[in-house]
Every structure is written in C-alpha cells, then in structure tokens.
C-alpha cells in the first residue's frame, strides 16, 4: 500500500469536513454575534449567553430535560439489563423468540407511532400528562437500546465464571452480584449513557407525551425556532455542542488510556 498526500486526497478531505462541520461552525460563530439578526455579523459579544442564563423558561426546560434523562436512563438500564439476562441466560423457554423479537421491535418503530400510542394509553387510563409521562415514555423506548447493548456483551460472557463463584460458595444471586455485575459494568455504563443521550435529545416522543407543566429543552428550542431563530438559540446550541464534545473527548481519552494500560499489562505477563 502506497499512500501519499495528493491534491485529490486533500480536496476530498476538505470537502468532507466542510460538509460535516460548516453548519455547526456557522452556528457557533453567530452565537457570539452582536446583532439580533442571525445572518448579519455585527461584532463580537457574549450578551446572548448572559441573556440565556437569565431566561427562566430555558433554565426550567433544561432542568426538566436533565431530570427526565437521569431518571429514565437509570430505570431503562435496570430493566434492559434484566431483559438481557433473561434473553441470554434463561435457555429456551416458551415464547423466547417472540420475547426477543418484541424487545427489539421499538428500535425500528417510527417514533411518531411510539409517541402516539403512548399518548393514547395515557389518555385512556387518565394520567395527567407532564414530567412523569415523559419519563415513562423515555423508559419505554430507551430500555430496548439498553437491552441490546447489555445483551451483546452478555453473549460473550463466560458462564463458567458464575459456576466458579457458585462452586466457591455463592448462591446464584450472590454470584450475579459479586461476579457478573462487576464484569458487565462497562456495558451497563455504556447502556446508561446511550439511554441518557437518547432521552436528552428526544423531541418527537416528548412532544406527544408532555403536558402543559413540563417542557423539555428540545421542545423549547423547536417552539422558539418556529417564531424565528434567535441568537439565544445559537448560544444554547453552542453550549450543548461543547458539552457533547467534552464528553466524547473524555470517553476516547479513557479508552485510549485503558488500551495503553492493557498493552503494558501484556508486556508484564510475558516477562
């Protein structure tokens, strides 16, 4: 393989990155715009950030979003892990195929349908829509993602580890707590992070299931944009982007460090 940095490579690389990041870059730049007009540059300013943190409606929405995401991610991870354990471990029970098929179905279900059906359910049983209905709805759909993530790790789990724990005196429940869970922890953490992110940026299902009392951040942004894009939204988006970027960088740094450590360990084992 003879790879050189040619003009062709440089051009396609640039085009690709421009395609991906130009919109985001514009958004970030205009969040520091002095002018109220989004597309006209009038000098640098951070006033929209200041204004954003004084806007109670936005802060409320952010708080609701965060609470929904934390709660729903936690419950969804617990339920998803339990579902994964049953699917991988329970062997062939009656209706197993049906069960595992049904747990994955919401992944491919259009969000609009999930949202609509949940709305119908909440109306039918007469719950007041608000914070709790959004949380329940988010648990419903992010649970399947959690189940998928956890079960894909569970498949490669060596069951003789659990047998060894049982052999050394653990009841099956104790061996699950002392051996299975700690080993599964990374998968469970990524399931939680995935569920958290999904809940954070969901618009469609939240719109269907929220009530007058509770508005999430994506809903707030969407409703604001319908009245016209303000630099305030740009500022908010910039904050979100920085948070996400920070998260991704931290995650890759941690992975990288684990990798280096593993290599060092292997060297140690060989000596």
């Amino acid at each position: 393989m003879n790879s050189r940095f040619t003009w062709f490579n440089a051009t396609s690389l640039t085009l690709g990155f421009v395609f991906l990041y130009l919109p985001i870059l514009l958004l970030v730049i205009f969040s520091f715009n002095e002018s109220r007009l989004v597309t006209v540059w009038a000098g640098f300013s951070t006033k929209w950030y200041v204004e954003l943190f004084q806007d109670e409606a936005f802060l409320d929405a952010a708080l609701v979003t965060l609470r929904v995401a934390l709660l729903s991610a936690t419950v969804a991870t617990i339920l998803g892990t339990l579902a994964a354990v049953v699917m991988i471990r329970a062997g062939r029970f009656r209706g197993r195929t049906l069960f595992s098929g049904m747990i994955y179905a919401p992944l491919v279900m259009p969000e609009v349908i999930t949202g609509l059906s949940l709305l119908l359910l909440f109306v039918a049983i007469g719950i007041d829509r608000g914070f709790w209905t959004i949380t329940i709805a988010h648990i419903t759909f992010s649970m399947c993602y959690a189940a998928v993530v956890v079960s894909s790790r569970m498949v490669t789990f060596d069951t003789s580890l659990e047998e060894a724990a049982t052999d050394l005196g653990c009841t099956p429940f104790q061996s699950f707590i002392k051996v299975t869970l700690p080993i599964m922890a990374p998968a469970i953490v990524s399931a939680w992070l995935l569920a958290f992110t999904l809940s954070l940026d969901d618009l469609v299902i939240a719109s269907f299931t929220s009530g007058p009392g509770a508005t999430t951040l994506p809903m707030k942004i969407y409703s604001q944009v319908r009245l016209g894009v303000t630099p305030q939204i740009n500022a908010l988006s910039t904050i979100l982007i920085s948070v996400v970027t920070l998260g991704v960088l931290t995650a890759s740094f941690l992975t990288r460090r684990a990798e280096t450590k593993r290599k060092a360990d292997e060297l140690l084992a060989g000596s």
Binding site: D158, S160, L161, E163, A164, L168, V179, I183
Partner: peptide, 10 residues
C-alpha cells in the same frame, strides 16, 4: 471444589 478448564479466574 472444581478447577475449570478455562480457569474461570475473576
């Protein structure tokens, strides 16, 4: 007690 083929070390 049993010693497993895969060793099954935690």
């Amino acid at each position: 007690n049993m010693m497993f083929q895969s060793y099954a070390l935690f």
